[in-house]
Design a protein around this nucleic acid. Structure first.
Lengths: 111, 111
DNA sequence: AGCGCCCATCGAAATTTTACGATGTGCGCA
DNA sequence: TGCGCACATCGTAAAATTTCGATGGGCGCT
């Protein structure tokens, strides 16, 4: 993938987060974490029809994107969402869909 | 990519949209459309350091994900955002980051 | 010390994505 | 009719992602 240099920090961050979330297994992980508030890796392996190593890999991707946080407290690893990041993402989406005067100008070109 | 069958329609839709947005060039396209409200393909080609065919390909991905709408009115093709979809996405993110009682239960497992 | 459990990482194969030039399509104009 | 413009699509090569089994590391238990 070619790097786009005119990109703002916000846009780069958004692209990275969207990319991390753009996979059914990882979406499942995130919604599961949202529902149960915190999960041990084994719980997620049980929920997903994937090998343990694959789930671990997905968790790594989500970790590196800053979407989840993992604490390896000895025997098991506990994951939970990073609320600030998801909140930031929601704001980003809202800003895109509701720019000032968006409604007023719509339908100028598209019918 | 293996298909996850326990996925809800919402989750599948979210994954598809996130995947489509998980690319710097496409994020740029979307923010540009948000800013200018509507763009001809050539405008986007000018903004991005990519070949015309590549930009067209990205637009196709965004179109198929339902994020943008394109109207080929004869000579040029005009694109604009599909506000409902972006709005839906914002709602999805908000729901994830603010589940009921999320704050009350946080820090149970993660420190 | 030795064993088993839970999880992360490694290495490799299959699939998908990304990007480009070349080619095709539809429209307006000379 | 013929030419040029604005896009879309095709074919393809390079790069990234996805998945798995195998392996490694840390901890608790006997």
């Amino acid at each position: 993938m070619k790097s786009i240099d005119g990109l703002t920090t916000e846009e780069e961050r958004a692209a990275a987060i969207f990319r991390a979330l753009g996979n059914p297994a990882r979406i499942r992980i995130v919604t599961e974490l949202a529902r149960r508030n915190a999960c041990v890796t084994g719980d997620l392996v049980d929920v997903l029809p994937l090998a343990q190593s694959t789930v671990s890999q997905h968790l790594k991707v989500l970790r590196e994107a800053g979407i989840v946080r993992g604490a390896t407290d000895g025997e098991s690893a506990c994951y939970c969402l990073e609320p600030d990041v998801v909140r930031w993402l929601a704001t980003f989406c809202t800003d895109i869909c509701c720019p000032p005067a968006a409604d007023a100008l719509s339908a100028v070109c598209c019918d």
